[in-house]
Structure formats: structure tokens, C-alpha cells
Design a binder for these strands. Structure first.
Length: 983
RNA sequence: GCCCGGGUGGUGAAACGGUAGACACAGAGGACUUAAAAUCCUUUGCCGAUAAGGCGUGCGGGUUCGAGUCCCGCCCCGGGCACCA
């Protein structure tokens, strides 16, 4: 047999034998435990697989192969996420159709996966663009629609006014279209949504039971962003700046104000009247002013969503009327007001201004009631804000901007007017699109207040550490200084562990008491209510593109929407020559009359929906299709899904941490509610692999050159880099991509070093979830390890005793033989546990260590071993090959055959370890004095506490360190160490 | 700004709160060879002398008999983001 690793001599042979044996076809034998191991399905690109893709395929393959050998029925499928923008764009460029192109790419992926020996059951494979698959994606759309979870509403798309096309977020760079360079506009069109927000609580709660990386779970919780708070109403009033100043200065301090708070509008008007010396009966001119003022309060607003809030305002008007019957109250319209949501209602007395998103509907009404100069500023700011893309508005460390509207809102708890600003750091899409600003206790509000000279009013007493950290003064002086000039303290105090100050009758309350009491007070007054708010928004699935799953809806002439009957599914994509974007923002499908024009079941004319579904729809249920991939009559059979689900181990990149995984979880819950599956969660365990980075040359920037966002050098090819002077070139590790020219393919690695060397390198180089800096040299190193394995097996082979299992019990084993068996069984134990816990680098390390131990033992016995050593070596060589099999399956089968064993390693039973054989007779015990290592002793493994303690005290080294000290205490950890504490 | 990860020898990395550096690479020395490659052996955290001893897991504190590991406060690097009130 060969005593070297020569992969080219046997890889092809084993690929064929595996194929002939149909080795990877899913076993479905009753009575066996199931294991469903799955990789994220890839998008098949023309560049083919890089070694980066293999980063998760190989480890998943290792665990699936081990599970199979352990006797599980293993489902290990692979498919292709074929719909999407890149395929469509490439096909347009190539003037071909995406379908045959995708088929060709997928075939190449499959070839490459087979090349490196991944054990996929190809009989279950499909692409998401297969009509037999997307028929059921459409069926699921209809399921969601019927359950009230799919709806249409207006939503903005990125519109390129030059190319006249809708752009994906990805195609917008710094507010401009990537291709045309045009400033991207917003265009509002009706689009389809799935109501994922309805499942927000369940999507948070069920995370607890999942065996996922904590970081990913946290990211999902943060994405859903459940927060409990209070939403309350703020009426808008128009005041002159002077009037505002007088009200503020004339008001008693909130802390001293003990009377029952009155309604804000009334208070504001009264204050205004009083401040001008108004007496209703005596001064007609001032009565007229009051009337005008009042009228401005009566502008209509649809911002009042809660009837209880409306009631509250009506009552206030009634009170006002009672107080000033001479005023004519116009009741025909509602007063402008808006709602704010806050999680920190306890800080409401610290509100010194409020901020509306520039798009907030009430802003236009405000503009119409303030003086022209302010109105103009508002419109100017709105225009600017509109031009800035969402992404840029939310970009990091952006300078906050905003303008004062000229109007005021009334803080309902102390009746004080606060100026209303508009600023784009408040988003129209989250919460109510309006905030109360408490600069003393919110960093963003603080920054804004500092920039625009707005007041900062502390209402939570800062604790000692905060003040001490921010000031060299003593605690009392620091508190005084803080209350006098909070703006000089930064960062702001946001802690919830203190009590309130300057907060009327809530002063002295703890934060949590104040939150509860304020919420109750607002609810009892009808001013506001407790509310749970989510960051999560509904899932927008519409795409104005050709290459996606058609949405199975017909719009009847009367505007009614009907689902395409199930028996008419799938709605197939028409095979057409042209599917370029249409120039009017609609899908290319809209320009294919034979597709669009159709009739419904009753024979009425209708038009098909022409949007397609975004790719996340296709990937939200494919794991279920794998359980029953050929069923023409159902998406899946419940019994089969129940047999396989959940996916026991789902492996892919962390870049899908939120969206894909959240959508798949959402759909699974819908299926559960519909009785289609028995699991509430699709993926029991999730693992994220690290990236593979390629060594990439960059050239220094030359004068006059501009860099792309986020780059600090110009990407150059390897050829260009070789020609440049070394000082011009910097090398960096960067994600492998075709455009960077740093891609290493599995094909070249297999060619050069063999599939198993590539597989072991990927496993060994770094922990599974850490990034790998790719080095060909490393693959070579692992091929050398395989060389040593081949050499060892060849050396043992002449004395190999296939019947060792039956004979080994009858032999008297010496210390050497017992040591070999111990290594064997320890290795089985450690390897099995480490594959299970995705610690593949140590899996390979144990095999290396084991081989080293076996080679040492072999060196001692020499060419003429005793019967006993031949038997333990036979056990060892068999074990080594079987433990190697999941990681290096080609080599394992070759070695298995070379020692005369029948069959394939996959069909062998995974070795089991014997705890008695794995245990050590003698152990090294660490002897510490005061926690510092002073000596180590070899001791019998069964030595008890007393034996250990006296042995430790007997150590000469220990005694020198104990000189002149008294032993206070002795800690004995049997099997580990003795720690003598002495003074 | 917010969120999530990380910081351990020359390098990739190991390490249930219990002997820090397993396993490998690179380096040094040696064997074999005309020579090289390949292979094999020895050695390698730092200071110190090949000793004794001391120092060492980003920094500063703390808990503990004992901390890379747990707690508090920082610094730096990477990734993500929808400035989420």
C-alpha cells in the first residue's frame, strides 16, 4: 500500500464508489434517531464556489457524517436560492434568460461540492426558481393573505429619475444611483407587506428556548425592539416669542406647584391673557386677540388617535368656556396636536422642547399657523430632509440639524409651553414620529439642546459616581454645580436607579414609582396611555422586478383583489425576451399583456399583480420542502415535516443574523398556527462560521484621486501589485470576491493538495466562528499530516489483526499497551465531544496528538511487535481511520481498504469510548502555596485528600516556601491540586 | 451615537473558576544527503546563567484559597445598524 498521501490516485475512485452505493441518499429507517443538518442555501453565482463558501459546508458535513455513523437517519440537503437581482442584472447584460444561466451555475456548484466530498443528498435538491417549488411559495402567500397577514399599502421605493427604474437599497450609494449617478428620489407606490409585527412578542419570547449564539439572539431582540412606555398627546399652540418668554418666567417653578394640574391649552391662554393684562369685559381689542389665539388652537388635526385623549381635550374646552363664557368657542374642528411616545415618562418634567420628524403630518398645519418667516424655514428644512436618503439620515455621528417651527406644544404635566422643532434625527417611521426632548437625560436631545441653545432641566438626581466621574468637586458641590449648569456635565445622566427632582408632586419618587404614577395619572385624565412599541416594521415583500416569485393576485376591474385559485397555481413567470425595467416603476411583467390580462373564476376581466416577491420569501420555508421535496400536491406532508423538523443544526454566515432567520421563524409560526407543522421554531441550533479572508493588494492613493466610501487605498490586481514598488502597495486581508481578485477556488486546492487536505485545513486553522486568513501553505501543512497518517497505517498494516476485538480481552497488557489503549479511548471521547460542540480545530488537534502518541509507541515496539502490542495497534489504527473519516473521508476509505477492511467507513459504527480504559492510573497534582505553583507531584489517581495533603506538605520545594509561616488552611481538589494557605 | 463580537508567545491558537500556552506553523540546533527538497530527532513565552527566583492572557480596580475565565470602570480592534426616544 501507499505510505504517502497521494490524493490524485484515489479521490476519483471513491467519488464513484460513493455514487454507485448511493451513499448520501437520506436513510429513513424506522427506529433510528433523526438528525437534520443543513447549510444556508447559496445563491449560485457565475464565479463558482470559493474556499470561503466551503467554510460552512465542510464542518456541517463532518457533523452529519458522524451522526450517520452513530446510527442516525441524517437529512443533509442542499438547494439553490436562485431568484434575485444579480441573476436578473447579469442576464440582462448578457442578453440571455436567467433560468438556463442559473441552471448552469448551480450545476457547477454541485460539481465543486462533490469534488470536496460533501455528503449532500442531491435527490432532494431544488432551486427556488423551479415552478414546482415556487408554486408552493405562492400557496403560502395565499395562506398568509387568508389569515389576514398579507396586505397592500403605499410605501416608498428608491427611484432613479435618470434610468427611470426602481433601485434596491444596495444600488444606492450615498444618496445616488450606483449606475447613473442620479440623485435618488422617493416614489410612493402600493406594495405588499406581511404582518410580521403581529408576531413580534412570540418572536422575542421563543428565542429563549433556542440553542443559538447569544449575540444573534440579542441582535434579534434589539431588531424587534420591544419597549414599554407611555404615549400621550401634546396640543399645539401659537405664541409669540415674547409671550413664551413671559409665560416661562412668570410661571411658578414646577416643584413648588402643588395645585391640581389644569389642562394645558386653557393654562396657556390664561397665561397669555394675564400677561397682557387682559380683562374680558373691559377690553374688546384684547378679547379679539384672545379669540384669534383660540382659533389657532382649533385647527383640525387627525393626529388624535385615542378617543380618550379627544375627550380630555373636549373637557378642557368646556372648562375654558366655563371660566370665560364671553369667548366664543368654535367647535367645528379639532385642535392640532400630536402624540409622543416615551419609555422615560418619569423625565417628562424635564421636557424643554419637542421634536417632530420633518415628514410628520402635523408639521404642515403648524406651518400654516405660524408667521411666514418660520413657515418658510419649515418648508426649506423639509425639502433638504427629503433629499437625504434614509440611510444617510441614520448614518453614524452625523451632525444633528433642525429648525424651530415657531409654534409651541403644551406639556400636560405642568402646563408649560415648549418650543416645537423639526429635526431629521427623529424618524417618521418609528413610534409616533414625534418625541418629547429631555436634554438633561438623553444624549441625543442634549447634543441638540447644546447646539441650538435650548434649556436643559435635570429631573433625575444624579448619583455620586456620575458626579464624581464628571467633576473634581466634592459630591455636594458637584450636585449644586450640576443643577446650576447641567450643560457643563457630559455625558448626560441616564441611570434609572435614582429619584426625581424638580418634578412637582413626583419629586422624591423613585424612577419606577414615578413611571407608574405618571402613567396612571395620564390614563385617568385621558391624556395618554401605556403602550408597547416595537422597532420591528412589517415585512415589505414587493419587488418591481422580473426574476422573482410572482404574487398570485388578480385585481378585478372594480378594484377587488382576488387570490388566484389554488388549482391554477403556479402563476408562472412568462418566458419572454425582454424583462428590463420598464421606466415607469412597475415590474417588467406589467408590460406583458398576455400575462397581465386574465379572467377570474367568474369570467370577469382582471389584471394580474405584477410585483414579484423578494428573495426572503423563497428562503423562509425551503427547510420544510427538503423533508418532502417531490410532493406535487402539497408544499409538504405534515407527517414528514414532523419526522424531520426542527432542523437540528443550521449553519451559515452571521450576515443573515436578523432578516432571513426572523422571516423563517415568522413563517414557521404561521404554519404552526395553521396546523401545518408541529414545531414553533424551525432551527433548534444555529452556528455561524467565520469568514475566509484573502490576501489583497491595495495601492496608495495618488494625488487627485478620490476613494470610495470606507476605502483607504485603491484596489489593484496581483499583476499590477507585482509591478509597483513595494512602498506603494499595502496588503490587507479582505473578504474573497471576484472583484477583488483574491478568490481561491476549491478546484485549485484539490488539484494541488487534495480534497481532504483542504477540508482539514478549513477545520483546523481557526475556531469555527473565527475568521481565517487564507494561506495555501496551511493546506500543504495538513497534507503533510495526512502523509504521516498514511505512513503510520502502512507501518502497522503488516501486523494488522482484523480480529483484535475478539482477542484483545485475553491478552495480558503491559504498561505500554495500556497507554496506547488509554490514548485510543481518550481520543474517541474528546473527538466525539468536540465535533458535537463545533470545535473542529481541536478535533483535528486530538487526531494529531493521537498520531504522535501512536508513532512513539510504534517506535518502541519496532518491527517485531508482541501479540499484545499488535492487537492494541490494530485497535488504534482502526479507530484512527474511523475518527478521521468525517474530516477526511477520501483518505479514510482508502486507508480502510488498505488494511483489508470491507465496505465504506460511513457504514462503520462510530467508535465508542470505554471510560475505564480512558482513565489515568497516575496523575500530576499541582502543589500551590498561597495560590502560586511551587511543585508538581505524580500521584496515584485514586489518592484521597489526606494522602494528597501530606504528600504536598512533604514536598521540599513547598517547605522552603513555608519557612517562617503558619499554615492557615489547606485546599485539596482531588485529582487536581493542593493549595496551602499560609501566613 | 447605539448594538454585537474580540484582545493570550514570533504566528494560528488551547485552556469545567484549579499546573496558562495543548495542537500546529515559524525560528534555532542536529541526523540523513555531494547538495537541496522531503523526512526524522532536540529545543523554543519573557527576564535571569542551562540555576534559584521573578514576570506574564489589552489597562486599572474588585470578588476568591485560587481569575485568561466572574464583577465594576476604561482603552484598542473588528463587525452590524433602522440616530428607535
Amino acid at each position: 500500500m501507499a505510505d504517502r498521501y497521494e490524493p490524485s490516485s484515489f479521490e476519483q475512485k471513491w467519488r464513484k464508489r460513493w455514487d454507485d452505493a448511493d451513499l448520501f441518499r437520506t436513510r429513513e429507517e424506522p427506529g433510528r434517531e433523526k438528525f437534520y443538518g443543513m447549510d444556508f442555501f447559496p445563491y449560485p453565482s457565475g464565479a463558482g464556489l470559493s474556499v470561503g463558501h466551503c467554510r460552512n459546508f465542510v464542518p456541517t458535513d463532518v457533523i452529519c457524517r458522524m451522526k450517520f455513523m452513530q446510527g442516525h437517519n441524517v437529512l443533509h440537503p442542499m438547494g439553490f436560492d436562485a431568484f434575485g437581482l444579480p441573476a436578473e442584472n447579469e442576464a440582462i447584460k448578457r442578453r440571455s434568460h436567467p433560468e438556463p444561466m442559473i441552471e448552469q451555475y448551480a450545476a457547477n456548484y454541485r460539481r465543486q461540492m462533490d469534488l470536496i466530498g460533501i455528503s449532500y443528498d442531491w435527490s432532494r435538491s431544488f432551486a427556488s426558481s423551479d415552478p414546482t417549488y415556487y408554486k408552493w411559495t405562492q400557496w403560502i402567500f395565499e395562506l398568509l393573505f387568508r389569515r389576514g397577514l398579507a396586505y397592500r399599502k403605499l410605501a416608498a421605493v428608491n427611484w432613479d429619475p435618470v434610468d427611470k427604474t426602481v433601485l434596491a437599497d444596495e444600488e444606492v450609494v450615498a444618496g445616488r444611483a450606483e449606475r447613473s449617478g442620479a440623485l435618488v428620489e422617493k416614489k410612493w407606490i402600493p406594495q405588499w407587506f406581511f404582518k410580521i409585527t403581529e408576531y413580534a412578542d412570540r418572536l422575542i419570547d421563543d428565542l429563549d428556548g433556542l440553542d443559538w449564539p447569544e449575540g444573534i439572539k440579542t441582535q434579534q431582540r434589539n431588531w424587534i425592539g420591544r419597549s414599554e412606555g407611555v404615549q400621550f398627546s401634546m396640543p399645539v399652540v401659537a405664541l409669540t416669542d415674547d409671550a413664551y418668554a413671559r409665560i416661562i418666567s412668570g410661571e411658578p417653578q414646577p416643584a413648588a406647584k402643588q395645585s391640581e394640574p389644569r389642562h394645558s391649552e386653557l393654562e396657556a391662554i390664561e397665561a397669555e391673557l394675564r400677561s397682557t393684562g387682559f380683562e374680558p369685559a373691559a377690553d374688546a381689542a384684547k378679547a379679539e386677540k384672545a379669540r384669534l389665539l383660540h382659533e389657532s388652537l382649533n385647527r383640525s388635526s387627525d393626529q388624535i388617535s385615542s378617543s380618550s385623549v379627544q375627550d380630555g381635550i373636549e373637557k378642557a374646552v368646556e372648562r375654558m368656556q366655563a371660566k370665560m363664557p364671553e369667548l366664543e368657542i368654535v367647535r367645528t374642528e379639532r385642535r392640532p396636536s400630536f402624540e409622543v411616545f416615551t419609555t422615560r415618562i418619569d423625565t417628562v418634567f424635564g421636557m424643554t422642547f419637542c421634536v417632530l420628524a420633518p415628514e410628520h403630518p402635523v408639521v404642515d398645519r403648524i406651518a400654516s399657523m405660524v408667521d411666514p418667516a418660520h413657515a418658510e424655514a419649515i418648508h426649506a428644512y423639509q425639502t433638504v430632509a427629503k433629499a437625504v436618503s434614509d440611510a444617510d439620515r441614520q448614518a453614524a455621528q452625523r451632525e444633528k440639524t433642525g429648525v424651530f417651527t415657531g409654534a409651541y406644544a403644551i406639556n400636560p404635566v405642568n402646563d408649560q409651553p415648549v418650543p416645537i422643532w423639526i429635526a431629521d434625527y427623529v424618524l417618521a417611521t418609528y413610534g409616533t414620529g414625534a418625541i418629547m426632548a429631555v436634554p438633561a437625560h438623553d444624549q441625543r436631545d442634549f447634543d441638540f439642546a447644546v447646539k441650538y441653545g435650548l434649556d436643559v432641566r435635570p429631573v433625575i438626581k444624579p448619583d455620586g459616581p456620575y458626579l464624581a466621574g464628571a467633576s473634581p468637586l466634592g459630591a455636594d458641590e458637584a450636585l449644586d454645580a450640576y443643577l446650576k449648569d447641567p450643560k457643563s456635565f457630559n455625558p448626560v445622566f441616564e441611570s434609572k436607579s435614582s429619584t426625581l427632582i424638580n418634578s412637582g408632586r413626583y419629586t422624591g419618587d423613585t424612577v419606577s414609582d414615578a413611571q407608574r404614577r405618571l402613567a396612571e395619572w395620564m390614563e385617568s385624565r385621558g391624556i395618554g396611555e401605556r403602550k408597547v412599541q416595537y422597532k420591528l416594521r412589517d415585512w415589505l415583500i414587493s419587488r418591481q422586478r422580473y426574476w422573482g416569485c410572482p404574487i398570485p393576485v388578480i385585481h378585478a376591474a372594480d378594484g377587488e383583489m382576488q387570490l388566484v385559485p389554488e388549482e391554477c397555481l403556479p402563476v408562472e413567470l412568462p418566458r419572454v425576451e425582454h424583462y428590463e425595467p420598464t421606466g415607469d416603476g412597475t415590474s417588467p411583467l406589467a408590460h406583458i399583456p398576455e400575462y397581465v390580462n386574465t379572467t377570474d373564476l367568474d369570467g370577469r376581466l382582471g389584471k394580474r399583480e405584477t410585483d414579484t416577491m423578494g428573495g426572503f420569501a423563497c428562503s423562509s420555508w425551503y427547510f420544510l420542502r427538503f423533508t418532502d421535496p417531490h410532493d406535487a400536491d402539497h408544499a409538504w406532508t405534515k407527517a414528514l415535516a414532523d419526522a424531520w423538523m426542527p432542523v437540528d443544526c443550521y449553519v451559515g454566515g452571521a450576515e443573515h443574523a436578523v432578516m432571513h432567520l426572523l422571516y423563517a421563524r415568522f413563517w414557521t409560526k404561521v404554519f404552526y398556527d395553521a396546523g401545518l407543522v408541529s414545531v414553533k421554531e424551525p432551527f433548534k441550533r444555529l452556528e455561524n462560521q467565520g469568514q475566509v479572508l484573502g490576501y489583497t493588494p491595495y495601492r496608495k492613493v495618488r494625488e487627485g484621486e478620490k476613494l470610495d466610501v470606507g476605502e483607504d487605498g485603491v484596489l489593484v490586481s496581483f499583476e499590477q501589485a507585482a509591478k509597483l514598488p513595494p512602498s506603494e502597495v499595502t496588503w490587507r486581508w479582505a473578504r474573497m470576491s471576484k472583484s477583488k481578485g483574491n478568490v481561491v477556488t476549491p478546484d485549485e486546492m484539490v488539484e494541488q493538495y487534495g480534497a481532504d487536505a483542504l477540508r482539514l485545513y478549513l477545520l483546523f486553522k481557526a475556531p469555527f466562528n473565527a475568521d481565517i486568513n487564507w494561506e495555501n501553505k496551511g493546506v500543504e501543512d495538513l497534507s503533510k499530516f495526512l502523509n504521516r497518517v498514511f505512513r503510520f497505517v502502512a507501518a502497522v498494516q503488516p501486523n494488522f489483526a482484523a480480529e483484535w476485538r475478539d482477542l484483545i480481552g485475553f491478552e495480558e497488557l503491559g504498561a505500554e499497551e495500556r497507554a496506547v489503549r488509554r490514548a485510543t479511548h481518550q481520543t474517541i471521547r474528546d473527538v466525539t465531544a468536540d465535533i458535537e460542540r463545533f470545535s473542529f480545530n481541536t478535533y483535528v488537534a486530538w487526531l494529531m496528538k493521537y498520531l504522535n502518541a501512536l508513532n512513539d509507541a510504534l517506535g518502541k515496539t519496532g518491527a517485531a511487535p508482541t501479540r499484545a502490542s499488535a492487537l492494541v495497534m490494530s485497535e488504534a489504527v482502526e479507530t484512527l481511520v474511523l475518527l478521521l473519516a468525517p474530516g477526511a473521508p477520501f483518505s479514510a476509505d482508502e486507508l480502510w481498504e488498505s488494511i483489508g477492511k470491507q465496505g465504506l467507513t460511513m457504514h462503520q459504527e462510530w467508535p465508542q469510548f470505554d471510560a475505564a480504559l480512558a482513565s489515568e492510573d497516575e496523575i500530576t497534582v499541582a502543589i500551590q502555596v498561597n495560590g502560586k505553583l511551587r511543585d508538581t507531584l505524580r500521584m496515584d489517581a485514586s489518592a484521597d485528600r489526606d494522602t494528597l495533603e501530606s504528600a504536598a506538605k512533604g514536598s521540599a520545594k513547598v517547605q522552603t516556601h513555608l519557612e517562617g509561616k503558619t499554615i492557615v488552611k489547606v485546599i485539596v481538589v482531588p485529582g487536581k491540586l493542593v493549595n496551602i494557605v499560609a501566613k
